[in-house]
Amino acid sequence: MTTNTTTRTAIVTGASSGIGRATATALATAGFNVVAIARRADQLDSLTIDSAAITALPLDLTTDGAAAQAVQHTLAAFGRIDVLVNAAGYGANAPSESVPPAEWDRLFAINVNAVAHLTSAALPHLLASARDNQVADVVTISSTAGLSAEPGAAAYSSSKFAVRGLMEAWRKEYASRDIRFCTIYPGAVVTEFGKDQQFIRDWYATMKTQGAVAHPDDVARAVLFAATQPAHASVSELTLRPTRQI
């Protein structure tokens, strides 16, 4: 039996742009109720105009109490949490000797701690959903940098490797209780990632010249694929690269 999406509720972080925004739209189109979370309220407002199924929650998930606030808001709006999509992320690539401690802290606060805190806060409600509906889902957007580290990306890659460990540990811990954990590893995707860093802008320009870029909608379809599998099937890891990216 294919998982029913008609009454399922999803939380999507990083929903103001890029992969998070595309995922919120894709889930709403597929029949989910969606709570879209991001720091930029103006971008969220435009998202809710596009779909009545999307409720906006402007929120910085690195602040104290933010995870609990996200969960409470979702329960007040829809009474349940069936799917959590951790799509918020931050990227910075630079020679390691030039990365200050504050940048390491920011990378791990957004890419690791926010994922850990929100997922932990949502777990009791995901367990309730799994009991009621046979399955619940956590999908986290990582990066191919979480599979293979590259020079100049030690801080970023290590944060994404940490996410991989979190998701695999949770998958094993909750498999017998019907929560599925899926980690998606996108390659070069056209987003705002690294927009303030010349090195990353140059790399994306090269990828575009080679036709080696994917789009946020491609990743959103992968999220939907994972979250709508039959209850007995789990996609635990999925790597999505542009066809021409080596």
Rank of each mutant, 00 (worst) to 15 (best):
K160M: 08
A109S: 15
A68F: 02
A116I: 14
A66W: 12
T74F: 08
I37R: 00
I49F: 02
T140V: 11
Y90W: 13
I141R: 06
S51T: 00
Q197M: 11
D202N: 06
A130I: 04
T209F: 05
A220P: 03
D60H: 01
L240C: 08
T74I: 09
A41R: 10
I54C: 00
L57Y: 01
N4L: 01
S157V: 04
E192R: 09
L238S: 03
T191S: 10
E150G: 07
T228S: 12
I11P: 07
L240A: 10
T2R: 14
P216A: 04
R131Q: 15
V163D: 10
E168G: 02
T55A: 15
S98V: 14
Q72E: 14
K172T: 11
E192H: 10
A154W: 05
A130C: 09
Y204C: 09
H232L: 12
F181W: 08
R171Y: 07
A87Y: 05
F225P: 00
V139W: 11
D82C: 14
T63W: 05
Y90M: 09
P95A: 10
A128Q: 11
R241Q: 15
L123W: 05
R177L: 10
V71G: 03
A92Y: 06
R180D: 05
D132R: 13
S96Q: 14
A153S: 10
A149I: 01
F225I: 01
V34E: 12
Y204N: 09
R171P: 02
A155D: 08
V138M: 15
Q69C: 03
A222P: 00
Q245T: 11
T6I: 09
T228P: 01
A214E: 13
